[in-house]
Design a protein around this nucleic acid. Structure first.
Length: 271
DNA sequence: CTCCAGGGGCGTA
DNA sequence: TACGCCCATGGA
């Protein structure tokens, strides 16, 4: 157990921001997640104070980077064009959001699953996949399941996915797992590649298009200039920005701006 | 280029 | 109990 003081960090906002699917609310001020083959609980114990259920060493080596805690998000918020009422409200509304640096393989599979799915549905499928093919682990008496590796998924057959509810996406995931397993695509390369190179490589995967590739780039590879356009963002651009969002104003970190927009639009149920 | 399947759960009425 | 929609993509 360690305690940290962190600003622009809201567990509920991060959980609801649609970038991660394995974070759960235990109570109003307490959340847990399974990520990076570990289980973590975080409790809000004061205005800007949090208690992490891990050692200082684990925090330093895993979670500080995972939650992007070295980045000052207040500068993204204060740089918003004040004449842009929607975005000004959006960053206020989602001021505790952070872009997580999640496992690349997990992001590929998760966002393949996400296509044409609602967030609750995505969570259910991911959980079933982990329970069935992840490793069972235990932390302080709590049993959890890690996200299955491509080594595990790549040797399965299509029928092994059928009771998980992923529908036609099963063939995409099996093919992706085999591509990694047989070295058709390389995680090390993806991690080091530029935005453009990683984008091209991701789009070569069967079932990965522009939207999913940008989600992997943003939520897994921390290319914060990636700007995924889903139905919500498309709706915002059309309704609020008359079909043209001024990305240039936020060049280099438009992915973070995108996340505020997404979270706000969903929160107010923009129609 | 356009159109549409594909599987199934979730939210709204 | 219906029915539209869902953080899209591949293939015709």
């Amino acid at each position: 157990m360690i305690e940290k003081r962190i600003i622009n960090f809201d567990l509920k906002m991060i959980k609801e921001s649609g970038q991660c699917f394995r974070m759960k609310e235990i109570s109003d001020d307490k959340y847990c997640l399974v990520a990076m083959n570990r289980y973590l609980e975080i409790e809000k114990i004061g205005l800007e104070a949090f208690r992490f259920s891990c050692s200082q060493e684990e925090f330093d080596s895993v979670w500080e980077e995972y939650f992007d805690l070295k980045t000052d998000y207040s500068k993204f918020i204060s740089n918003v064009d004040p004449s842009d009422e929607f975005l000004t409200e959006a960053v206020k509304y989602g001021s505790g959001i952070r872009i997580l640096k999640q496992d690349t393989w997990e992001m590929i599979v998760t966002f393949i699953i996400s296509q044409r799915k609602s967030i609750p549905s995505i969570k259910n499928i991911v959980e079933r996949l982990c329970v069935k093919y992840g490793d069972e682990k235990e932390c302080n008496g709590f049993t959890y399941y890690t996200f299955p590796s491509y080594q595990v998924l790549g040797v399965l057959e299509l029928k092994d996915f059928q009771d998980l509810g992923m529908g036609y996406r099963d063939k995409y995931i099996l093919k992706a797992a085999r591509d990694f397993l047989y070295g058709e695509i390389d995680l090390e390369y993806l991690n080091k590649a530029s935005y453009e190179d990683a984008f091209k490589e991701l789009c070569n995967l069967y079932g990965v298009g522009i939207k999913v590739a940008n989600c992997v780039l943003l939520f897994g590879l921390y290319h914060i200039d990636a700007f995924p356009i889903d139905t919500w963002i498309e709706r915002i651009i059309n309704i609020i920005y008359d079909g043209n969002f001024p990305r240039d104003k936020y060049k280099g970190y438009e992915g973070i701006i995108q996340q505020y927009m997404f979270y706000y639009a969903r929160g107010i149920n923009l129609k």
